[in-house]
Write a protein that binds this DNA or RNA. Sequence first.
DNA 1: CGGCAAGTTGAACCGCCTCAATGACGGTGG
DNA 2: CCACCGTCATTGAGGCGGTTCAACTTGCCG
Lengths: 252, 252
Amino acid sequence: MSSSESAFIKKLSAFMILSPDEKAQIEMLQTVQRRIKARKELVYENQSGHAAFILQEGWACSYKIMPDGGRQVIDFQVPGDFLGLRTVLMSRSNHAFATVTEVVVAEVPLRKVSEIFRVSPRLAAAVLWATSRDSAMLIEHLADLGRRNAQVRTAHFLLELWDRLRLIGLATEEGYKCPLNQYLIADSLGLSAIHLNRVLRQLREAELLTFRDGQVVFHDLDGLIELAEYDGGYLDHGEAHGYKSFLKWDLQ
Amino acid sequence: MSSSESAFIKKLSAFMILSPDEKAQIEMLQTVQRRIKARKELVYENQSGHAAFILQEGWACSYKIMPDGGRQVIDFQVPGDFLGLRTVLMSRSNHAFATVTEVVVAEVPLRKVSEIFRVSPRLAAAVLWATSRDSAMLIEHLADLGRRNAQVRTAHFLLELWDRLRLIGLATEEGYKCPLNQYLIADSLGLSAIHLNRVLRQLREAELLTFRDGQVVFHDLDGLIELAEYDGGYLDHGEAHGYKSFLKWDLQ
DNA sequence: CGGCAAGTTGAACCGCCTCAATGACGGTGG
DNA sequence: CCACCGTCATTGAGGCGGTTCAACTTGCCG
């Protein structure tokens, strides 16, 4: 896997081995690029008929604004992730997207997705795999909010992010760069920023990890994984083991 | 819409108007039927290579068991809903399915889904719409757990269920039959069954609704909708308004 | 220098949990 | 026919996890 390949290709490579032809087709999806500043809304709530985007550089988030002004962050997007794909067939979206940092996105019109589905069942399966993985993350997030306490929840969140970033070469065993502030993370974890701050202090004092200055540094990865009861298997990052699934998919 | 049509057809009809041919194709998906008793596991956690199911009669649920023995119910399935579609391309599933009541399901092998995608882009779009709608429900569920209090959360849950059941003709303005017990609902809403019981009492005493003996009876629907700040628009139940989306999807 | 965004800490409160017990109901078997 | 059981619903008492409000710090930028 060359480091010059797009994050999207790196990600899909976890699902199946891509041929040079397929890689070229994927790159064709990403020709129309746009650079967008930090903290800009990308897709509005209730907006219809929007396109989807592939995030190439930077971080974004999807969220829902509650009637009382509160905010629930649905998930964060890192390079290689789709934005807005899950609502592209809905007449309205029940959530909005915004950039966190400055980003580079490729706009992917519905027409191009449709074409991919027509000409390459393999790539179609890969795109559907990515959306299934998003669902699996949503489910894990749900379990976070419903059944895990603040400490486990926070540890779990930071470990999942670590796995996702490793896949695209943006994290090491030591840690990773994370441009999210405590308000954003708190709104994702269903906590107040104040309490999240205390939880982060606990994790630091327990010498598990430090989150400071936009940097996550692990001190005791094993201890953290044990605390969070973390098993990233739901992300399905194997060595293209999904290829077996594809066979079932491709054969009629 | 004839009442003899399958719940799955009734549901997809909210997205687009189906031709007789398309209806026939859909019914072909549902030829292999199985009857399963109440409280049986359907798909085990971590199981791979499973098929998907279309639920035709009865209720089911998907859930995740936590390491401490707790349970988070992801969502409930009612007639017309897919089971296991979102994990069909993953090498493992991070959640399990179980029946709530006795059910009738149609087993849909991956091969048949693949065939639908090949021969009918319109039906493919309809299936993808159904999965998008599932995601939208997951997101609303996430907002429930993260940012709504127990009362609003419970009201929201019961109203969403009402909308879903109306679509397939199983609910009226008065209420609906609901075979879920308080333990199941509590595990879905991230509450203890004890607290849910108190919340249901509050809703009853506020003369908003009564949930008793497997029956939800509305006393003040408008008041309930206002309390829950409920807007079911995310379910995308219009009069086949999604058809416009399909046009974009179909045209190259 | 002033001003704003982000992080940090303390104090008081309350929503929801846990533990415990009791009531209502249908099924089953002696 | 009734005693016994399991499941589900209901209620009380007490405790904790996380919230809210408020204050102070730090760093950055104009």
